[in-house]
Design a protein around this nucleic acid. Structure first.
Length: 630
RNA sequence: GCCCCGGUAGCUCAGCCGGCAGAGCGGCGGCCUCGUAAGCCGCAGGCCGCGGGUUCAAAGCCCGCCCGGGGCUCCA
């Protein structure tokens, strides 16, 4: 029955705008086209795959269908766009082009502005899909021109039930605590929030290439793929390991300052253990499983189990609460689907700080949560991510909101900018409120960093109790917070931000306390080498990471290499410095050259890294002795 | 997981309608001893991702797999 497979596939998108730009001819048959950027606003975009056997009368059907829809939506323009990716049984280019032209011809008979993207080109495509429920429609047409599948009309009772339960309402909450429906919010001046909102709701995706941080993480010798491992398990050469280790140390220090109690728990758990079974079954098939003898173990995907099992055996009284248990998990594992992995943004093995607060009641939980939000913002600020780089989302049940409006407003106020709100009709997850701080990257994709949740189920589930003032055993409320999110993801955000700085004409850099080399010394000639060694030793005594470019290379080359490595301070030392006793310093942050004494330089660095952890440079200090990791 | 694109020297990539494996950078050797973003000359370096097939002949064509990227989906 060959006709069963003959469908034209059309993805109808109601867009705020679509931009396309022919880059180079790709197919054996291609149309003449100007290599410029085309932009069409407020249009119905038809991403169209012509399949083998699609008959000519389909063109008419597809267009009349689209026009009916465009009218309903109020879209004034129609864009016909050849889009091969919807089909694995494409028609020949010749036939496809003929069909597309027929569609165009058909559309021109009607009252609508018609655009058609050139066929046979590799094109850059950017689309911004509108955020309403009918903005995205997938259609598939059979030989008779009959609409055979449409997502809107499909009946899936089981899925609908779930959807009902998960029904979300989206708002923006401003810092006065007002909830404004997303469609009514004026996003001017809040472009990142708009991008984040679209990412969350409307699934807007810009089509670009590989994320910029991937090239940076490899070139800067921070992280790299390890083909001999499972995808999403990275390797970390010396500089990356140093950066990661400093971040881990800093986050841990911060949580302990806030009263965290650091513990360590196993990375694998028995799948048959009764307390774990339910939690596990709720989120199936995302675990690494390890078979050992007769038992099956799963690798932890957070520190929850370890800490809950540990807390269950503790003797807790209300006097001890709130109690924060803390662990930096190296690693946590989630077997994400292969198509979801991307550089350092999403991994299968990642390092995550996780701190649970056991609280006496909701009031205590709310007050702890506010402290934890402040802590999280301090952590992210230390790596150079300020509230300008972040967007907050708060998600809660309708019931929680109605009973705790002031609290949700306070969270938005601490963050200090309007936040995205998702409100659920009913409680579906184990938590009743959750917030996250999200980073919007150079591809306008969002990634969650810090997060905290109010968990009202797991204490009971794990048998965690405390004795209250009245002598009775009670279940605490548990908060689940990762102050930074995965450490790898923090590095991803830092690198993406650096890339965006560079795109705007600035100099990309890492925070001084995280720079593997903080100061590079370059001797002008070999006779200055001894003096340079002495300067280096003096800096090392002051806990500054310093190295010396003693290679047989020109000055220009050495400066270039130092710049390429994003080194914050470069000291050039020659006869002039020997005479005057002053140093010539290139300061990356200011893009300037300055003359200062050794002591001034040391003082400046010390004051800028105050309160941050220090580790010595885990590489040979003489560049002539330092191997490259590529 | 599904669809699409890619994988050639350490890196970035050219070669691809079948006919001797290439460039730049990096590495190594030599010259230059140098003042703020690439000094000069030379040399070495390849399972053309892996496996199978077609062919007189495969980096190239076909099939399968692995790895990476994009999209879908997902993100407790």
């Amino acid at each position: 029955m060959p006709w069963e497979g003959w469908f034209m596939k059309v993805l109808q998108l109601h867009v705020d705008y679509v931009e396309y730009e022919p880059i180079k001819p790709e197919s054996s048959i291609y149309e003449e086209a100007e290599r410029r950027r085309y932009r069409v606003e407020d249009a119905l975009l038809l991403l169209t795959s012509i399949e083998e056997g699609d008959g000519e009368r389909l063109a008419e059907k597809v267009i009349s269908d689209a026009l009916r829809f465009a009218e309903k939506l109020g879209a004034k323009r129609l864009v016909i766009y050849p889009y091969a990716h919807l089909s694995s049984r494409l028609a020949s280019p010749g036939h496809a082009l003929k069909m597309l032209k027929l569609m165009e011809e058909e559309a021109r008979k009607h009252e609508v502005e018609v655009w058609r993207a050139p066929f046979g080109w590799n094109k850059r495509l950017v689309v911004a899909v509108k955020g309403h429920p009918l903005a995205e429609q997938f259609r598939s047409y059979g030989v008779e021109g009959q609409l055979t599948v449409s997502r809107q009309e499909e009946e899936v009772p089981q899925a609908l039930k779930m959807e009902e339960k998960l029904k979300s309402y989206w708002y923006i909450m401003n810092t006065d605590g007002e909830l404004i429906p997303v469609e009514e919010f004026d996003f001017r001046g809040h472009e990142n929030l708009e991008a984040f909102t679209r990412y969350e709701i409307a699934k807007q995706r810009a089509v670009l290439e590989q994320p910029p941080h991937v090239q940076l993480m490899r070139r800067l010798e921070i992280a790299d793929y390890e083909p001999a491992s499972d995808p999403g398990n990275m390797r970390w050469p010396a500089k990356g390991r140093l950066i990661k280790s400093l971040l881990e140390q800093f986050i841990t220090q911060k949580v302990i300052e806030y009263g965290g109690v650091e513990v360590e728990t196993p990375i694998m758990y028995d799948m048959g253990h009764p307390a774990l079974e339910r939690y596990l079954n709720r989120f199936p098939a995302r675990q690494y499983i390890i078979q050992s003898d007769q038992k099956k173990f799963f690798l932890r995907f957070a520190a929850c189990f370890g800490q809950f099992l540990l807390a269950k055996d503790m003797q807790l009284s209300y006097r001890h609460l709130p109690l924060w248990l803390y662990e930096l998990t190296r690693y946590s594992f989630r077997r994400e689907k292969s198509g979801e992995l991307a550089g350092l943004r999403r991994l299968r093995a990642f390092t995550m700080p996780d701190t649970h607060a056991f609280c006496r009641d909701l009031e205590q939980a709310k007050s702890e949560m506010k402290r934890r939000l402040r802590m999280s913002m301090e952590v992210l600020e230390a790596v150079g991510l300020t509230r300008d780089d972040l967007e907050m989302a708060i998600r809660f049940t309708k019931k929680f909101y109605e009973e705790n409006r002031d609290f949700t407003r306070e969270l938005a106020q601490i963050f200090g900018k309007p936040v995205l709100v998702e409100m659920w009709e009913e409680q579906f997850f184990y938590f009743i409120l959750k917030w996250e701080l999200n980073f919007v990257d150079s591809q306008r994709k969002a990634a969650a960093l810090s997060t905290d949740q109010i968990d009202v189920e797991n204490a009971k589930q794990y048998g965690i109790t405390y004795v209250d003032a009245d002598g009775r055993k009670k279940y605490p409320i548990i908060l689940h917070c990762s102050p930074s999110g995965a450490v790898e993801r923090v590095i991803y955000a830092m690198l993406e931000k650096a890339y965006m700085v560079k795109e705007r004409g600035g100099k990309p850099s890492l925070p001084l306390w995280l720079s593997p080399t903080q100061v590079r010394i370059i001797p002008v000639a070999q006779r200055h080498y001894e003096d340079c060694l002495r300067i280096m030793e003096e800096m090392e005594r002051n806990e500054i990471r310093v190295d010396l470019d003693d290679r047989d290379e020109s000055m220009g080359r050495k400066i270039l290499d130092a710049e390429t490595e994003w080194i914050p301070y470069v000291v050039v030392y020659g006869d002039k410095e020997k005479e005057t006793g002053m140093l010539s310093v290139r300061v990356r942050e200011e893009d300037s050259q300055k003359t200062m004494s050794l002591q001034e330089l040391i003082n400046q660095i010390k004051s800028k890294t105050r309160g941050k952890p220090f580790k010595p440079l885990p590489l040979p200090k003489l560049l002539s002795k330092r191997p490259s990791f590529h």
